[in-house]
Amino acid sequence: MINPGKMLKEVLCSLFRKPVTVLYPHVKMEMPVGFRGAIKFSPDKCSGCKLCMRDCPTNAITINKVGEKQFECEIDLGKCIYCGQCVDSCFKKALEVTRDMELAQAGKNKGKLKVTHR
C-alpha cells in the first residue's frame, strides 16, 4: 500500500502542539537522580589509599597528603570522563557523584577542582 504524504496528519497536528525543544540554557534542565556529574570529595573521610588514582582511566584525580591524616584532592575536569569509577573504588566513601553537569570553563586551568581540608 502506498500513500504519498503519509506524515501529513502528524505534521499538521504538530503545528498546534507545543514545540518539544527545550530552550536551554534559558530553561534549566534537571538531570535524573544518580546522574554521573562532577565528583564531590569529602576530605574528612579520605584515608589516603589512592585507589581512586590507580583506577582512574584518565589520571584526572590526584590525592595529596597535606598533613597527618589530612588529604587534598585535585580533579581535572578537562580530563575527567565522569565514569564514576573512583567513587566505586573508594572504600571510605570519600568520593561521590553529584548531578552537577554545567562544568564548562573558560581556560584550561580553571577546570581544576581542588578540595583541601578546612
Binding site: 505534521v11 499538521l12 504538530s14 503545528l15 502542539r17 514545540p19 518539544v20 525543544t21 530552550l23
Partner: peptide, 11 residues
C-alpha cells in the same frame, strides 16, 4: 518557522 513547527521544533 512553519517548517520548524511542522517538525515540532521552536524555529
Amino acid at each position: 518557522k512553519l517548517y520548524a513547527r511542522f517538525q515540532n521544533r521552536v524555529g
